[in-house]
Amino acid sequence: MSATMTDAAPTNHSAARLASPRRDLSWTAAPLVGLLGLAAFWVFPEDLGLMTRIAAAALYVLSLDLVLGYCGIATLGQAAMFGTGAYAAGIAAVHLVNDPLILLVIGGVAGGAIALATGALILHARGLTLLMLTIAVTQIVQEVANKARDWTGGSDGLSGVDPAPVFGLFRFDMVGRTSYLFALAVLVVGMLVARRIVRSPFGLACRGVKEDPVRVAALGGSPRAYLVTMYAVAGMFAGVAGALTAVSSGIVGLDSVSFSWSAEALVMLVLGGTGRLYGAVIGTVAFMAAHHILAATDPFHWMAFIGLFLMGVVLFLPGGIAAGLERLRDRLTGTKSGSAPGGRA
């Protein structure tokens, strides 16, 4: 069984099921996340700080899904956009403005700008070369942030981000209620916007590029233009996520633009499942919650756990948690589809 699972391309399989004539329920994802998030607000009032970080990280992982899940760009550099957004918002908060929404916009613009600039430069490459280029971009951004101590605080981190009340009404309290609800709202809006984009003509073209760029060119399209545009759009999402982290936590550190934060985004996305948007949220919640529990005892336990889990997902569950859930649902509802185990040649 495992062999047939590994052979099948996970993406084909995900799109095949989207296309099946069953009722399309994907619009429920964002409202559901909102409702569950609100429920969590009442159930876990002690963990608002963690949940706020999860919400912001979910938006960041969502940005990676736009790039990887819908364009097929394998990147280890998404943190460059996240970190740039976080620092831009943080610096603006210290020196210029403190309205949280404006700070998010600043973060988004900064993330989008760096993605556009670097994407135009590097997206001609493929495979290992592209991976290296995305890593190199992240390291350079980190190095710049490290050296520009006057602005970023260097390795001490940037602190003193003190945002004004949201809409002038809701103060950021000590317990973190406002932070959490604000982050949750931004995540839900982000999911709605992302869903809109992937279902637009542009999203359709990007899916085409992911499958066969040459065929897209034969339809008169420019594959590279789509890739760069989506990279920039995803950069804006990542930048907003970075700004959200800066606003809700009050600090920005060098780890927000590190290689490992890029790699973790990839891990979270693949855990959840690519090319679905809500898979990004599932993966982030699972990863960060497990991290919270396991890493509290010993960070190395956490590494062993996540390492084994990752290998298991690649070998046995190519579509991530979301695909597993869908398969389970199909089992339960008796829906027949090509993705049932053994159903594929």
Binding site: T6, A9, L68, A74, L76, G127, L128, L131, A263, L266, V267, V270, F300, H301, M303, A304, I306, G307, L308, F309, L310, M311, V313, V314, L315, P318
Partner: peptide
């Protein structure tokens, strides 16, 4: 060729396990 993403993830996972 076609497996870059699986390769990256599987070998990152393996690395984590070895480190631990």
């Amino acid at each position: 060729h076609a497996n870059e993403l699986s390769q990256v993830l599987l070998t990152i996972g393996l690395t984590f396990v070895i480190v631990a």
